[in-house]
Amino acid sequence: MKAPVTTDALLYLNGVTVSFDGFKALDELSLIVEEGELRTIIGPNGAGKTTMMDVVTGKTRPDAGEALFRGFADLTRLDEPEIANLGIGRKFQRPTVFENLTVFENLELSLADSRATWATLFARLTPDHHDRIAATLARIGLTALSDLPAGALSHGQKQWLEIGMLLIHDRTLLLLDEPVAGMTDSETEETAELILDLAKDRTIVVVEHDMAFVRSLGARVTVLHEGSVLAEGSIDHVQNHPRVIEVYLGR
């Protein structure tokens, strides 16, 4: 057993290494996200952003290193549903909503409620549940479309629905993988507002390519490169960082 780590951080990654057939997707990555923080993560393709999210959500087991949530939950030993039930939510790069379920049902599955198989067999929607679904529908602007199969939504609407699915379950930590990919400018602006609004009462980690969007969030930025942290700080700090410039422009 490793020596116990004591940390106050909400998310604590230390020396995390993941390799696929000799290629190191993450190379001793260390990252600390404090409770209540809004953090943006940028980096060129192959920098390890998605793999980092895979490790945090239990999809990928690291070869080495520690990943702790709230200082005690060992994320390297839990599987996806267990991690999700700790309060870590994830939004994928490509919008993944359940296309054969209606918008309403997509939200219903995301409600904070027992996830046990037996419980789902006998679950009934309470009036409170209805209210919360209605409120979320209103917030993501899909009230009128609630009975439509999610597969019939536009790309942007799917992104919104996915964010709504994260909203309705009160997650402690949200991981958003390129939330504005494929959105129009106005949709991007709305999303930025929504994220800032969400960030008031939860911790959010956003992975994004769109620098204008990152700037509009105005949060602390971590730059990943070749599987480890290259620079960290405010957007202006990292944009003037010589190594970051080299990595981004030198390619």
């Binding site: 939510g89 993944t96 359940f98 049902e105 996830r115 006998f122 379950h169």
Partner: peptide
């Protein structure tokens, strides 16, 4: 027709997404 039924339909189409929502695909 239960909520489990909708979990099943959901996992039929996007199994790992259901996991990230916190449902145990294995148990269902």
């Amino acid at each position: 027709a239960s909520k489990l039924g909708r979990v099943l339909l959901a996992l039929r189409d996007a199994e790992s997404r259901v996991r990230f929502l916190g449902y145990s695909v294995t148990n269902a």
